[in-house]
Amino acid sequence: MRDTLHLRPLEKEDLEFIYKMRTNPNVMDYWCDEPYTTMDKLRKSYEAGHDSDSHRQFILYHSKEKVGYLGLFDIDARHRNAEFAIMIDPAQQGKGYATDATRLIVEYGFNQLNLRKLFLFVVNINEKAVHIYQKVGFQMEGELKKHFFVDGSYHDASIMSLFREDYVN
């Protein structure tokens, strides 16, 4: 499947696709954010960050269909690290896209941006995500006790990381 997946930089016309996910409570619970935004706010955020070197945002495609959104955020050129995040369209979840998409962005970060470390935050109750990240090579780096409020209660979260020298593609 990996050969049918590809990334394309986020464009303004993709905002409607992202808006649908950003207002979906089932998606945003695992991004540890409330499912509240407006198209105007999303457009302003896009415009403000469009020329920024501190993040790279992509739309994930399977053949010609949009299936997800992912990016590297807070890219630190001095320390050569960045935070990774991914969001798969709920209609496309369970099809195996997340693992291959994670590999694509890891390879981009290491091979194009010359990063040495990628990290992420994951709510521990999101066992599928933890499994995917571990399958790609991310390792637990630390735990945050009752850190995120998801679905009415506080949950532990983990910080996971992957170093370039540990990545096996």
Rank of each mutant, 00 (worst) to 15 (best):
L7G: 02
R8N: 04
P9N: 13
L10I: 09
E11V: 03
K12D: 13
E13A: 09
F17H: 03
I18L: 15
Y19R: 02
K20E: 11
K20S: 05
K20D: 03
R22W: 14
R22K: 10
N24D: 15
V27I: 09
V27Q: 05
M28T: 14
M28W: 00
Y30D: 02
W31Q: 11
C32R: 12
D33Q: 13
E34I: 07
P35C: 09
T37G: 09
D40Y: 03
K41D: 13
L42S: 08
R43Q: 14
R43D: 11
S45F: 15
Y46F: 15
E47P: 04
A48E: 15
H50G: 06
D51F: 11
D51G: 15
S54A: 14
H55C: 10
Q57A: 13
Q57H: 14
F58S: 12
F58N: 13
L60I: 06
H62Y: 14
S63A: 05
E65W: 01
E65H: 10
Y69T: 05
Y69S: 08
Y69C: 10
G71P: 04
L72F: 14
F73M: 10
D74Y: 14
I75A: 07
D76A: 11
D76G: 07
H79E: 13
H79K: 12
R80S: 12
A82G: 07
A82C: 12
E83F: 14
F84C: 03
A85G: 15
A85R: 10
I86M: 07
I86L: 03
M87R: 09
M87I: 15
P90A: 11
P90R: 12
A91M: 09
Q92L: 01
G94H: 12
G94Q: 12
K95C: 04
K95R: 14
G96Y: 11
Y97A: 04
A98P: 07
T99K: 14
D100K: 04
A101L: 07
R103I: 11
L104C: 04
I105H: 01
I105C: 02
I105L: 05
V106Q: 00
E107T: 00
E107V: 01
E107Y: 00
G109K: 02
G109C: 02
F110V: 01
N111V: 00
N111W: 00
Q112G: 00
Q112M: 04
N114F: 02
N114S: 15
L115G: 07
R116A: 00
K117D: 06
K117Q: 14
K117A: 03
K117L: 05
L120G: 03
L120K: 05
N124R: 09
K128A: 07
K128N: 12
V130F: 04
Q134C: 01
K135C: 09
F138P: 00
F138S: 07
F138M: 06
E141C: 03
E141A: 06
L144A: 08
L144Y: 12
H147G: 02
F148R: 06
G152T: 02
G152F: 00
A157E: 04
M160E: 07
S161F: 08
L162W: 08
L162R: 07
R164H: 11
Y167E: 03
V168L: 10
N169P: 13
N169S: 12
